[in-house]
Nucleic acid binder design. Sequence first.
DNA 1: GACTTTTGTTCATATATCGCACAGAATTCT
DNA 2: AGAATTCTGTGCGATATATGAACAAAAGTC
Lengths: 251, 251
Amino acid sequence: MRETDFVSGFARGLKVIEAFGETHQRLSITEASKLAGLDRATVRRSLLTLAELGYADYDGKFFTLTPKILRLGHAYLSATPLPLQIQPHLDQLSEKAGQSASASVLDGSEIVYIARASQRRVMSINLTPGSRLPAYCASMGRVLLAALPESEARAILSRTDLKQNTPNTKTDPEDLIAEFRRIRSKGYAIIDQELEIGLCSIAVPVENDRGQTVAAINIGAPAAHAPASEMAGRYLPLLQETQRALRLILR
Amino acid sequence: MRETDFVSGFARGLKVIEAFGETHQRLSITEASKLAGLDRATVRRSLLTLAELGYADYDGKFFTLTPKILRLGHAYLSATPLPLQIQPHLDQLSEKAGQSASASVLDGSEIVYIARASQRRVMSINLTPGSRLPAYCASMGRVLLAALPESEARAILSRTDLKQNTPNTKTDPEDLIAEFRRIRSKGYAIIDQELEIGLCSIAVPVENDRGQTVAAINIGAPAAHAPASEMAGRYLPLLQETQRALRLILR
DNA sequence: GACTTTTGTTCATATATCGCACAGAATTCT
DNA sequence: AGAATTCTGTGCGATATATGAACAAAAGTC
């Protein structure tokens, strides 16, 4: 790609939108400029542009995003067949298992939820399509990383902040790589309270008809209700049934 | 705002992302240019920029959005307290009612789902945060339009394609305006299969502690299970309970 | 209240982008 | 196969934007 095929004004604007991520509902120009790492004058122009287009509100001091911004993410969710195809299968899976079922794909070192059928909220955090979790300590993340060539998985781990979320969290890259090998041979991943105390989950890859891994699905349950040792026995058959059904319909 | 405070390259890029809305998963440069109504060269640069940043994939012919694009919409969902504050109340509401409960806000002539607790899928369409429905024929949409000054509601209706989705759908603007008055006096809206045959729903406004309507919540149920005539009796008390609880916590 | 620091805005100019027009490549039609 | 059509990539002049410093206003500090 040539230099001139890159619209830096656009790239800067996207960076500004992302500055609102997580905890920043209201941003002043200076705050946004610090978060985005861009010049104040530039950020100001981007924000005023967003306001002019209705993607943001401006009260003279602070900018806030408006729901119109959801159109951008929704362009993906509604345009990509994967979430739509998976959703009904997740619903069935969730109902049969009596637990929450989710589907996600990999984006860098994070997994992104693309569909979810929740039975009852078991986690302290609120997961919806678009939500993100670090891949290394999530069951779907393990499955998706295990599906990559080992060098690539290693590269991603090296770029990940391997945080010790709970006493159970595996944080040693070599341990994780070894775990990926076990996952590849067994065909599923189990997480025993590595993300959050009290939460266990089991995941399998979702493959298309050519055997390529295109997503992962999981079932999450409270450890009190379904300890890690019982996850496979209880839920693996259901997950594999869904996995087989999806392999037949995914091109 | 001055002319020079507007970054048109950014605005154009956002338009390109929105071109992927609905049914367009894969777009060639020319297709995207037609949908966005922009010059091909401009669209090409925007798409290459998206690809360079990882928001899109390019196979030399077609562009597709990647899940990274969800970061943009997610910046809103995770940064705005409203969805997070409402979610647990929706969960309770949904469980008590044994039906799906949702929350939405108005964006132009459409409602945008910001949170949802689903019990079982009753609609043919798949609703998640970010999903959109026309306001005029949705219970939450009616409530939100009824909360606007009548002139504004009229203006929105005039810009809406009032489609006859089912034999029940109200499409006459004057009928709708009259319905808004009834909604204001009763405090809730009921939809009897106006969006989709077999689906009824009831909605109430969500007000903050100053009495401003900031969102709407609803319960949807299959008509076979809960006919429109029984919706109010069964679900209105639960909705109002949630409404009161939210008024106390929303600033 | 005077001082310092932070923030928002403006300006001139160097730089980058836009949209048009053209040419080559790919596709479709005859 | 060759013509016609559609699509894509590129060069260029006109136009729009980014930059960083400078200024003004506000906020915070003593």
